[in-house]
């Protein structure tokens, strides 16, 4: 099993911070969808804004902006840079 030492969930990253992906805990279609967008271990992610009511959150990944809900982002493990 992969262990995510000292990693935090992506959902806890504050707006304006950049982090690097350590691992994905997602399964099924969503894992594929996320991977198709280039969200894989080693990728840098910047949290850029939250929706008007705090959710979902928009992230910049490889030059594109993708919005994720809190539940989904909490299954993506990252290290702060």
């Amino acid at each position: 099993m992969i262990t995510y030492d000292k990693s935090i969930p992506l959902s806890q990253i504050a707006v304006g911070c950049t982090c690097r992906i350590v691992g994905l805990e997602l399964d099924g279609i969503l894992r594929r969808r996320i991977q198709d967008l280039g969200i894989i271990p080693g990728t840098a992610v910047e949290c850029i804004r939250r929706g008007p009511s705090g959710d979902p959150t928009a992230y910049t990944i490889r030059g594109t902006t993708v919005a994720l809900r809190k539940e989904d982002a909490s299954l993506i493990h990252v290290h702060l840079i």
Partner: peptide, 11 residues
């Protein structure tokens, strides 16, 4: 269950 949503925000 509420499932996930991945939404691209193009420029």
């Amino acid at each position: 269950e509420t499932s996930s949503m991945v939404l691209e925000l193009p420029p």
